[in-house]
Design a protein around this nucleic acid. Sequence first.
RNA 1: UCCUCCCUAGCUCAGUUGGUUAGAGCAUCUGACUGUUAAUCAGAGGGUCGCUGGUUCAAGUCCAGCGGGGGGAGCCA
Length: 479
Amino acid sequence: MFNKRVRIKEVLEGDLLNREITVMGWVRTFRNNQFIALNDGSTNSNLQVVLELGKFDESLLKRITTGAALKITGILVASLGKGQKVELKAQKAEVLGDSDAEKFPLQPKKHSLEFLREIAHLRFRTNTFGAIFRIRHSLAFAIHQFFNQKGFVYLHSPIITASDAEGAGETFHVTSFDLENPTKNEDGSINYKEDFFGKPTNLTVSGQLEAELAALALGDVYTFGPTFRAENSNTARHLAEFWMIEPEMAFSDLEDDMNLAEEFIKYIIKYILENNREDLDFLATRLTEEEKQKPQNERSEMRLIEKLEFVTNNDFERLTYTEAIEILKNSAANKKKKFQYPVDKWGIDLQSEHERYLVEKHFKKPVILINYPKEIKAFYMRQNDDGKTVAAMDILAPGIGEIVGGSQREERLDVLEKRMREMNIPVEEMNWYLDTRRFGTVPHAGFGLGFERLMLFVTGMTNIRDVIPFPRFPKNAEF
RNA sequence: UCCUCCCUAGCUCAGUUGGUUAGAGCAUCUGACUGUUAAUCAGAGGGUCGCUGGUUCAAGUCCAGCGGGGGGAGCCA
């Protein structure tokens, strides 16, 4: 067997002192022709490997360059140096894979995130991205664990769908036609009947409608998978391919929905605070260093770990859209005309600057806004008795804005159909969805949470392209 | 898609009112040193100044178009 190695995480944390062990990893730095900082991805920390002077061939030492892969067998001893507790005194050293130092783009120095984004296939080899993707794994695991503990069923909603009815955004078309020469009708239009699915299809923009179908049979379900939007959004908060978590609960109202969302966010953040402390500490330090470049008033008030602990330890602020409008309308910022979009009347959609004011200036904590005007929300949200608002809720987080969007769903068939007609949604095509309201409809609610937005919040990173391994965005599908 | 800033060595950046042979730090290479921690010291190599066109005696520098990137906005998760 080739892989008889000990992971560096275990070497550093375990009880292996004075034992002979074999490690494998990649060279981060090689100092003094003696000291190798070796990293194998199991932890943010490197293992110091010591090559005794004169014991190894000059030809081997020359091949130990930044990025090279090594297999080292030696004795783990207490370190003679100050930077680490233990070090591996090498007996055998083997280069598994060479790395030409003149060509390897990563150097033992700081690199900009913009540069690393252009070499996304190699950025896993850096401390920052190692930490990010270990945290991403932990978050995904914690999400499944949370829902599993609560008795939710993990639903695999389809990637390819024929419905674009939710209106969540522009879709990517799916076809097996030769785009240069599609089958056409006599009038020149494309003949979708001859296409693979016999009708126009697209990549999913949301699994919610399918989750509702399942929830009205299985009770509580959640989806966790990729979604695709062909929006021409060029921002640090949008991707064309991103992952969403969408729980859906039967026999539940808006308050149940809010409670679930808040408990969920606190649970998964607590999980990584307990399980990814080293990586979080590294990212926290990175963030603090980065913010030293910024003017005082743009720096965060809390350090990353503090912020995460604050979120797990404090209740989210809950208020209605109407209350939020009043706060904004009467705010000093609004009166001094500091907002680019002044808040003058009920019914306006909240802009980024308004959300940021509420979360970062007024409440200084996550905020749940409920009961939005029906005109600015989706057709499936349940209408409140006032006739003006719907039972929607958005959770706004410091630094990133909307992180969760959810609602109690309209379970009354007549009300739902009426609303669909008002909003020009093809009722006939949605019969499969409406059947849930025809046969044993019940109050139900759910929400959608953007996984990468959650990653931004948790890691303190500011560009969404840095928290997904291979980002997809307009004019870019590298790797 | 809109606004705005940027694109000079492998990376991060200087480059004066347009003017001789385009610089620095880090990285890389060579040598020295050898318990280092982003090692240190000495030396060397490394450039289509994003691309295309224009103005000019002369363009890294000015103008236009295109491409790429950052920040902000819209759409949203």
